[in-house]
Simulated scan of single mutants.
Amino acid sequence: MNGPATRHDAAPPAGSAGLIDGAADPADEAASLRREVETLRRALAERDAFLAGVAHELRNPMTPILGQVERLLGAAERDAPEGRVAQGLAQLRWLVERYVRRATTLLDVSRVQAGQLALLAAPVPLAEVAAEVVDALAPMAAHAGSTVSVTVPEDLVLSCERLALDQILDNLVTNAIKYGDGGAIAVSGVREAGAARIRVSDRGVGIPLADQARIFERFERAVADPGTAPVGFGVGLWLVRRLAEAMGGTVAVESRPGEGATFTVTLPLHQ
């Protein structure tokens, strides 16, 4: 006589113990996530390489154009310093220089992302660089109805890369002009706690507290609404932060909506 019927459950396949029917294998999910992350990394690397190539192609042809404009401007200023030709060429030179700076910003962004932005510290007089930047941006400030004052001791010398400092100040003053609502802008520099503190202040729209960390990220702007935000890449403040940190410094902002904003960059002093 046959024994009582018994139930024989099939043994689960190896590696699937404890899995519920239809549930995904954690190991498969992890492998899939790793593949997706790697795909995204390759896409970002390709995008940054593309940006670098575009920036290079946009900037390089402008170098001989700028040289020609400067040559013609020099001749016009010798013949008629106050004439319309000289004034027009001066404006054209400023426009070309702004174009080159924007292309350089794109190139710097791609270099930062690729870890290829090497900064060499040297003695740099802050007053000299600040005056150069403010002078270059004078047409933009005048168009916005803003005045820009510079208060920096002549003997305040930083330990940094001059081009990087120029880029930092250019971005901060440009930002102040864009969002300054036509008000006065102040650039100052002081010694504090063994370092140099550079401040760029405006009296414009201000930045809500909730947005003050966000604006230092890539592709973010102080005004989130694309319909009201000034034209730009949204990388200026991100680049300021990365350049300052690369030179052993920091950047911070103090602001209230409707009361303007003050950006403070701290950089090492030249010993």
Rank of each mutant, 00 (worst) to 15 (best):
A14C: 14
G15H: 04
S16P: 13
G18N: 05
D21C: 07
G22C: 03
A23Q: 03
A24Y: 08
D25R: 01
D25A: 00
P26C: 03
A27W: 07
D28W: 04
D28F: 03
A30N: 08
A31I: 06
S32T: 14
S32M: 10
R34W: 09
R35V: 02
R35T: 10
R35Q: 09
E36V: 10
E36P: 12
V37T: 09
E38Y: 07
E38A: 14
T39C: 09
L40S: 11
L40V: 06
R41H: 12
R41W: 06
R41N: 13
R41I: 05
L44N: 14
A45I: 06
E46T: 15
R47N: 14
A49G: 15
A49S: 15
A49Y: 12
F50I: 02
L51T: 11
A52H: 03
A52G: 05
A52C: 00
G53N: 10
V54H: 11
V54L: 12
V54F: 10
H56E: 08
H56I: 00
E57M: 08
E57G: 11
L58Y: 08
L58Q: 14
R59Y: 05
R59H: 10
N60W: 12
P61C: 01
P61S: 03
I65E: 07
G67A: 12
Q68N: 13
Q68A: 13
V69G: 04
V69S: 06
E70I: 01
E70G: 02
R71T: 15
L72M: 11
L73I: 01
L73H: 05
E77Q: 10
R78C: 04
R78S: 04
A80T: 06
P81C: 06
P81V: 02
E82V: 04
G83A: 01
G83T: 01
G83P: 04
R84D: 04
V85T: 06
A86R: 04
A86F: 06
Q87L: 00
L89G: 00
L89H: 02
L89D: 03
Q91A: 15
Q91L: 10
L92E: 06
L92D: 07
L95H: 12
L95V: 08
V96M: 00
V96K: 01
E97K: 09
V100Y: 08
V100E: 13
R101W: 09
R101V: 07
R102I: 00
R102L: 03
A103I: 03
A103F: 01
T104S: 13
T105A: 12
T105E: 10
L107M: 09
L107A: 14
D108F: 05
D108K: 09
V112T: 15
Q113P: 12
Q113K: 13
Q113A: 15
G115W: 03
A118C: 07
L119N: 02
L119A: 01
L119V: 05
L120T: 15
L120S: 15
A121D: 14
A122P: 08
P123C: 04
P123H: 02
P123F: 02
V124K: 08
V124D: 06
P125K: 10
P125H: 07
L126K: 13
A127D: 00
A127Y: 03
E128A: 14
E128M: 09
V129M: 05
V129S: 09
V129W: 08
A130Y: 10
E132H: 13
V133E: 06
V133W: 05
V133F: 06
V133L: 00
